[in-house]
Design a protein around this nucleic acid. Structure first.
Length: 428
DNA sequence: TGGGACTAT
DNA sequence: ATAGTCC
């Protein structure tokens, strides 16, 4: 019987910071999202203060002033590297590791006796901590949905000691499902939980008893799959991590609300270039570009407008210039005066593999020489930006004091990926 | 008051 | 085109 483990790193971003700054142990520490916007990782001490996930930074700034909490900007280079280290350790305990997010990985366990598996999972739990310094919880079950449940139990119920192995149809699984509010179940959000509650489904157990066919009719195939998974029938597969993305989005809040079209155009151009870089690094071509804008939905005193428009490219391309042209075009068509915009971004859509050359055989709009010139130029830009830092070469000149720069006031060092930022050890 | 990929409607 | 899901 094949089993699936979910390994979830505890307070991941905070834990990464603590590996290199042990003095943060025992302190109330939080890590903020990009742009220092809201709280996305909390130490237990900060949870104990009753500060919720997603709290806007400005709501808790006063506690920083009082010295009661520490807030750090997010350091994705550090977290990404630590995540890979955790994955490397997992690889020694599993026949297959599937990263699900930066701090969660599914791992396959094949050919274990039930008794062995618990011991194996406990070893994995211990070794990840020992080798990487990152504390994790481990949940194991026959399906990913139940592994999520097991992981939650491992995290919340101290008696499990951070490791919980569940079998389908066991009394233990049933007890946990009965205690699980539907909104906390993987794949069921607040809205869906409300709709299910109307029909009398309140707990995970209720949903596990539902008729899958009926659920499919009244909701969707994804909810039907959840029902089957709750019963121990595995039917949710992970997207292979190595598969190229099917769409690429680059977006950011403008540092302040703005209606200045020049400022917005500059931000959109920036996103278009960044998106094109991502596109080339995964070896894809885009056939369409979508631009979106958004006003601040929390400002109900202001008029709201969230337009988006997709425009087709004349041919599949990864050339930043063609993508920027299309993006500029789309922006011009959706921009309306009289709104204060909060955020904007660019999505690259309908991606295809750049080696699928048969399209270009039919494409007479561009000669081979042109195409080669484009590729060479883009490759040179990418190489320089990679080596000398992002933004070394850009198309057009970004104004230095633009409103949409990234805010990150409390950024720590990239201890594990940059020679210049290695931590120093001193003898006492 | 985040950013990104995906799915559903 | 827009809204909702997850992290």
């Amino acid at each position: 019987m094949s089993m699936i483990g979910l390994v979830d790193c505890n307070s991941f971003y905070v834990s990464c910071e603590r590996v290199f700054q042990p003095r943060l142990n025992g302190q109330a520490v939080g890590v903020l999202s990009n742009n220092d916007g809201c709280l996305i990782a909390r130490s237990n001490e900060i949870k104990a203060l009753g500060i919720e996930m997603g709290t806007p930074a400005f709501d808790i700034q006063h506690l920083v002033g009082q010295g009661r909490i520490r807030l750090l900007s997010s350091n994705y280079e550090l977290y990404g590297d630590m995540s890979q280290r955790v994955q490397a350790v997992l690889g020694e305990f599993s026949s297959g590791v599937e990263p699900y997010s930066i701090d969660e990985m599914f791992v396959r366990f094949d050919g274990f006796e039930p008794g062995q598996l618990l011991e194996h999972a406990r070893q994995l739990h211990h070794k990840v901590r020992q080798y990487t310094g990152i504390p994790v919880c481990v949940g194991v079950a026959p399906t990913r949905t139940l592994a999520k449940l097991a992981n939650r139990a491992a995290k919340k119920i101290p008696a499990y000691g951070g490791v919980c192995v569940l079998r389908a149809e066991s009394a233990e699984t049933r007890a946990l499902l009965k205690r699980l509010e539907l909104g906390k179940l993987w794949g069921v959000g607040r809205r869906l939980a409300e709709r299910l509650a109307v029909l009398g489904f309140r707990t995970g157990w209720d949903l596990a008893q539902a008729d899958p066919k009926r659920i499919r009719r009244q909701f969707s195939v994804t909810v039907e799959r959840t029902v089957l998974e709750l019963r121990g029938i595995s039917c949710i597969e992970m997207n292979d991590f190595h598969e190229p993305r099917q769409r690429i989005m680059t977006s950011r809040s403008f540092g302040k609300l703005t209606e200045n079209v020049d400022e917005i155009r500059e931000a959109i151009r920036q996103h278009g270039q960044r998106g094109a870089e991502k596109l080339r690094s995964q070896g894809s071509l885009a056939r369409a570009v979508l631009v979106f804008l958004k006003t601040n939905p929390f400002r109900d005193d202001l008029p709201q407008y969230s337009p988006s428009l997709a425009v087709e490219l004349s041919r599949p391309t990864d050339d930043s210039r063609e993508i920027l042209d299309a993006a500029g075009n789309a922006l011009q068509r959706i921009y309306r005066r009289g709104y204060r915009y909060q955020k904007g971004g660019v999505m690259l859509l309908d991606l295809i593999d750049c080696h699928r050359q048969q399209l270009s055989l039919l494409d007479t709009s561009q000669s081979d020489a042109d195409r080669q010139r484009s590729q060479k130029l883009m490759a040179t830009m990418d190489e320089l930006n990679k080596r000398m830092g992002r933004g070394t070469i850009t198309l057009g000149t970004p104004s230095p004091g633009a409103a949409w720069h990234l805010r990150c006031d409390n950024l720590t060092q990239r201890y594990s990926t940059r020679w210049e930022e290695l931590p120093a050890a001193r003898a006492r």
